[in-house]
């Protein structure tokens, strides 16, 4: 093989260095996806880590791009990795200062769907967490107004869960127009 094919050793991203130095006990896994650092952290420390990433003057991940979740119930390989936690709550962050992105993933078990809300860190998390609650049923503790945001108020279930039937449970055919909030 020629020298051109040799991969140059990349310097370790600052975020990983700092997290390993300060929050090593919370880190479950670290990965890289198309130039974005991906860290998986324990739920108990998720709020502390997100707060650290936002407030640390060197990292300054001040912009919360998105909050969402993944239902891994049919992904055996993913389930095995994190103690069979069904859901993975995902935070996408951006640092204007460092002009780089980071992804923080938090495994959440089905029997304990509570996770601390980050609305106190980012006001913008309000609707994002409501959507995640609506679609997956994740309960964000400390959220000021955790109601459905996309589905009708009287909707039952959380449609982006993998066990929710794609064509629904008959709600698109069954309508009681008197009962609806018209």
């Amino acid at each position: 093989m020629s020298e051109e094919n040799q991969v140059e050793e990349q310097p370790k991203p600052l975020i990983l260095e700092k997290l390993e130095a300060n929050h090593a006990d919370a880190l479950l896994a670290q990965d890289e996806s198309r130039g974005t650092v991906v860290v998986t952290v324990r739920k108990e420390q998720s709020y502390a880590i997100l707060e650290y990433l936002k407030t640390d003057p060197e990292l300054a991940y001040t912009f919360l791009v998105d909050v969402t979740a993944v239902d891994n119930s049919q992904m055996e390989s993913e389930l095995m990795q994190f103690d069979y936690a069904r859901f993975m709550v995902v935070y996408q962050l951006y640092s204007y200062q460092g002009q780089c992105r980071a992804r923080v993933k938090v495994p959440v078990h089905e029997n304990d769907l509570n996770i601390p809300s980050v609305t106190t860190l980012w006001q913008g998390a309000n609707w994002l967490e409501r959507e995640t609650y609506d679609m997956f049923g994740i309960n964000f503790e400390g959220h000021p107004d955790l109601r459905r945001i996309l589905m009708p108020d009287d909707f039952e279930g959380h449609p982006l869960r993998k066990d929710y039937p794609l064509r629904g449970r008959g709600e698109r055919e069954r309508f009681n127009f008197d009962k609806q909030n018209m």
Binding site: P165, L166, R167, G168, R172, F175, F177
Partner: peptide
């Protein structure tokens, strides 16, 4: 859009 959230034809209603 053959999904849970979409009316499959408004003529049902």
């Amino acid at each position: 859009f053959d999904t849970y959230t979409l009316i499959q034809g408004v003529d049902q209603f």
